[in-house]
């Protein structure tokens, strides 16, 4: 269970590292910006989705690419 879930954050988009929630320095500039766009699009889907408890909104490529 993630920290965000444990403390009860309602809508969670999991990102790739504490120091860069909306980035990924291992990517080139264009790829990193595309990744950030994906995260924000997912975040917008999250706020438009009804939830009743802490819910993780996965992003494609969010798990293993880190």
């Amino acid at each position: 269970m993630s920290i965000a879930e444990r403390v009860g954050a309602p809508r969670i988009v999991a990102t790739r590292g504490i120091p860069y929630p909306t980035g990924d320095p291992s990517l080139g500039p264009a790829a990193e910006r595309a990744w950030r766009r994906k995260l924000l699009e997912r975040a917008l889907e999250a706020v438009a989705t009804p939830v009743s408890a802490p819910t993780i909104f996965e992003v494609d490529g969010g798990k293993d690419a880190a």
Binding site: Y20, P21, T22, P25, R33, R36
Partner: peptide, 14 residues
């Protein structure tokens, strides 16, 4: 990393 590109913390560009 944040100081290299502040958008990694506040994603204003996107």
């Amino acid at each position: 990393w944040a100081n290299e590109d502040p958008h990694r913390i506040v994603p204003l560009d996107v």
